[in-house]
Amino acid sequence: MEYIYTLVILIALGVVLASSFNLIIGYAGLVSIAHPVFYAIGAYVSALLARDHGVPVPVAMILGALAAMAASIAVALPSLRVSGDYLLIASIGFQLGLLEAIKNVSFTGGAGGLTNIPPFLIQTAGREAYVALVVGVAVLTVLLTRSIAHGPYGRALSAMRDDELAFAALGRNAVAMKVAVFALGSGLAGLAGALYAHYFRFVTPEQFELLQSAAILTMVVVGGIRTTWGPVVGAILLQALPQAITFLDLPVALLGPLQGLLFTGLVLVFMFWRPQGLVAAGEFWRPSREAPDVGRP
């Protein structure tokens, strides 16, 4: 049973990561693959605050998410003011740099990882409660993404992606919108990191490296970029698949590279056969169903 719980938590965290990354790369059209670094910041900040400074875990989790948000603003603001292309470079640099720093300072546990992270809920309310919490966060993330994408904000993002200059000439601050979406998406990734840390109670810098970037990108692209359900489908598929290969009786040394191959292979296959992903988004922006119908007499 514990195995199933763990798998459900991994899938739910995958949904949070993929959906929030979909906001950034899909709806806002921001090119960045450094999503895992904000996942890492959430995990480390929350774990360290709770373990070393006696901050209650729920508060530490929220602070972890806020720290990820603040870091993302610090990365995005200067680079987006110059041009969208700089965000990719700045964010990858930040990802590699920060993880290197985590490996080389002692209070983070260094390359060996951070251990003895205080647990949350499991002791008092049981594992099921924690699973419910993480699944709840995943559901809320999906609903939030959907309400943003198909409301006035999503319409504005769609317009901004179509023509940024015309968008600006209507009085819209495209940079502010991009930073806001980047911060929201990164904050959600931070929250996912905190939820991860207090369940598994052990994190290493390694798990937030480029392989994780590739995994999250694959979830979004294979599932269906700019759709509500695509990242969900992608997260389920990509979290379940690596688990499935572990059932094959392969040497451990092969498993890591095989996962990497699987991600790149999937992306390549989808590029040729189904570039729109499993769940296809129309090119046409659509409001949510709750919007009043107009255009009919």
Partner: peptide
Amino acid sequence: RLFPSLSVLDNLMVGPRHY
């Protein structure tokens, strides 16, 4: 420089300067 992924109505909905 219209927004091609939006309907005519939605192009106009992005028009107001404070939204």
